[in-house]
């Protein structure tokens, strides 16, 4: 059999088969169309359809079971995702509230500071100047702060600066609308002080240390100085009014071989980050009862700014 004959036979077969398929297709299409027409015009066929669907009930039940499982899995993931979303929202809210809470704590501290400043102001005379510190310290090695009140508002050089806890420092530069105050912890600052318990006088020198501690030099080694003693300003020198809290003795180093002891004082005022301060005008408090004789105070040692 040649190749051409074989192809011809295959074509004939295909055509014949195609024709029969076309006939079958036509028949089925007519039947289907007839079914459509019958269903559309004879509602009674719905009963037949009902019977057919009855047969399919197990199939539908199986599918429902399967899709129920699918929906369950889907629901699980949906619940999971909604829980995660909720968790995220709650975390965000918590963070926001945490920030609010922190601000609240800051406000509370500020409020307390302002209240004590107010009390202090009432004690020291009402014409004092309230100032706030500005976040500017050009030389970190020096302990000083910039205040938002200058000569225009009445700030002047040598003006005592007091915080809610006690003495902060003194104004060393007065610009027009700002001023610079040297803190008592600066290495160039000296402050005449007095022990509240014994009345012993001394000079508190700034150390320039980061912990803002003050040093009491030249205190005789036999002097009654103990840890926890409170120091107040003595009023000597006429710059700082007497009786202002300066700090608490934190450490006493007394060597029998030495003529003087060394005492370190922790300042009462917040020198790390003072916010609101009072600039005292020259109306000092009436000198507090100065117990005991003056002892250990250098006559010329007034508060000094460099």
């Amino acid at each position: 059999m040649t190749r051409g004959t074989a192809t011809l036979k295959a074509d004939r077969f295909r055509r014949r088969k195609g024709l029969s398929r076309a006939g079958e297709c036509l028949l089925i299409c007519l039947l289907s169309f007839g079914l459509l027409v019958v269903e559309a015009n004879f509602p009674a066929i719905q009963k037949v359809r009902g019977i057919g669907e009855l047969i399919l009930v197990p199939v539908q039940a199986t599918v429902r079971l399967f899709s129920g499982g699918f929906r369950g899995v889907q629901g699980y993931f949906r619940d999971q995702s909604s829980l995660m979303r909720e968790n995220r929202e709650l975390r965000t809210r918590l963070l926001r509230q945490d920030v609010d809470l922190q601000q609240m704590a800051v406000l509370k501290t500020e409020n307390e500071e302002l209240r004590s400043l107010h009390t202090l102001n009432a004690q020291l005379g009402s014409n004092n100047l309230t100032a706030e510190t500005l976040p500017a310290n050009p030389d970190p090695s020096r302990h000083r702060v910039t205040l938002n009140k200058g000569s225009r508002q009445g700030a002047y050089i040598g003006q005592p600066v007091v915080g809610s806890g006690g003495v902060v420092g003194q104004v060393t530069r007065d610009y027009l609308v700002t001023s610079e105050a040297l803190l008592i912890s600066d290495a160039s600052h000296a402050l005449p002080v007095m022990f509240e318990r014994t009345g012993l006088r001394a000079i508190a020198l700034g150390t320039g240390r980061r912990d803002h501690r003050l040093l009491l030099p030249f205190v005789p080694s036999h002097a009654d100085v103990i840890q926890g003693d409170t120091l107040v300003s003595s009023g000597a020198g006429g710059l700082f009014p007497a009786g202002l809290r300066v700090g608490v003795v934190e450490d006493v180093r007394n060597s029998p071989a030495e003529a003087f002891l060394e005492a370190f004082v922790s300042p009462s005022a917040n020198l790390e980050s003072p916010r609101q301060v009072l600039l005292l005008r020259s109306e000092p408090l009436p000198p507090a009862g100065e117990p005991g004789p003056a002892n250990g105070e250098s006559p010329g040692a007034a508060a000094a700014g460099s």
Partner: peptide
């Protein structure tokens, strides 16, 4: 074609379409 028509008819029953619609389409 008969298989296609039967499958289409089953789909008509399953999805609730007019009987014969998917049978006709599947046959075509």
């Amino acid at each position: 074609l008969a298989v296609a028509a039967a499958a289409g008819l089953l789909q008509d029953l399953l999805v609730g379409s007019p009987l014969g619609l998917y049978a006709l389409a599947a046959t075509v």
